[in-house]
Simulated assay, not measured.
Amino acid sequence: MTSDDIAGIVAERRRAFEAGITKPLAWRRQQLNGIRRMLEDHSAEFEAAVAADLHRNPTETQLADVNVVLSEVAHALRHLKSWAAPKRASLPLALQPAKGWVVREPLGVALVIAPWNYPIQLLLGPVVAAIAAGNAVVMKPSELAPATSAVFAKLVPDYLDARAVAVVEGAVEETTALLAKRFDHIFYTGGARVGRIVAEAAAKHLTPITLELGGKSPVYVDDSVHLETAARRIAWGKYFNAGQTCVAPDYLLGTREVLDAVVPLIEKAVREFYGSDPQASGDYARIVNPGRFDALAGMLGDGTAVLGG
């Protein structure tokens, strides 16, 4: 896709917004129900795509991706009317007898740039919010989850209004071309390095942004908890999606006595969940690509304790 193609896609969504297509609540409900139907009608296809990208078990995909988005859709549909309704606002005495309201208006055209680790949830979640607010949307799935990206490119035009909602596939070149265009809001999920690039590009147009970036997630264990239960929960949280979760446990904190007791229990839980050879387990996902695998393998020589093999 060329830069001119991308410029045309963005311009078409802006024309749709300026024509008022996205503002009626009936249109917003139709699009939200379209997202719901897309996920329900093609559940198996999405499961297969995520399995191809991440070797993810279908149960994990339903739990962490599909069901989360369906809940977002249901929540938005339930509250859409009240969210959009004008709200009375108090005014100072100097302006009496005037009356005031806060009227929420759509911003315009939103760009949603998604990561690869939860390629359904982290694309459609922000899209649900953008559509519920009455915006046109350009969706950019992650090129590192190409099977899931291809499913979105195929299905979105069948379920959502193609005048106002579009999918742009591609990698760095396409994302760079998108960021060169003016949007009214950009939602990016990913790491700090690319987050800085997104922020710099948005600043040129004074575009507001939402950056959902990763952080650190320590786990503190004390001697008041049931250690075997804690160990199973820690193992589940850490190894879900092969640990590729921004809020997965990063490290444990506790007294030496507690840690000496809980570490063997975590190892036991990992074996119970995935067997003695996790590579042969149908329940264990995979690192997304060789580059990420090599980066993680490089950490094994720095003295970091690795649990579960």
Results as ranks from 00 to 15, higher is better:
residue 107 L to W: 00
residue 107 L to Y: 13
residue 108 G to D: 06
residue 109 V to D: 04
residue 109 V to G: 01
residue 109 V to S: 07
residue 111 L to H: 09
residue 111 L to W: 07
residue 111 L to R: 10
residue 112 V to M: 10
residue 112 V to H: 05
residue 112 V to K: 10
residue 112 V to Y: 09
residue 113 I to K: 12
residue 113 I to Y: 12
residue 114 A to W: 04
residue 116 W to D: 04
residue 116 W to Q: 06
residue 116 W to M: 08
residue 117 N to E: 00
residue 119 P to F: 01
residue 119 P to V: 01
residue 121 Q to P: 00
residue 122 L to Y: 03
residue 122 L to E: 05
residue 122 L to S: 01
residue 123 L to D: 05
residue 125 G to Q: 13
residue 125 G to N: 09
residue 126 P to A: 03
residue 126 P to R: 08
residue 127 V to W: 04
residue 128 V to A: 11
residue 128 V to W: 08
residue 129 A to R: 05
residue 131 I to E: 09
residue 132 A to C: 10
residue 132 A to I: 06
residue 133 A to E: 04
residue 133 A to F: 06
residue 133 A to N: 03
residue 133 A to K: 06
residue 135 N to Y: 13
residue 135 N to W: 12
residue 137 V to D: 05
residue 137 V to R: 02
residue 137 V to H: 02
residue 137 V to P: 02
residue 138 V to K: 13
residue 138 V to W: 14
residue 138 V to L: 15
residue 139 M to T: 07
residue 140 K to W: 13
residue 140 K to C: 03
residue 140 K to V: 04
residue 140 K to I: 02
residue 141 P to Y: 13
residue 142 S to E: 10
residue 143 E to C: 00
residue 144 L to R: 04
residue 144 L to I: 14
residue 144 L to M: 10
residue 145 A to V: 08
residue 147 A to S: 15
residue 147 A to C: 00
residue 149 S to P: 11
residue 149 S to Q: 15
residue 150 A to M: 03
residue 150 A to W: 08
residue 150 A to P: 04
residue 152 F to R: 13
residue 152 F to E: 09
residue 153 A to V: 13
residue 154 K to M: 08
residue 155 L to C: 07
residue 156 V to R: 01
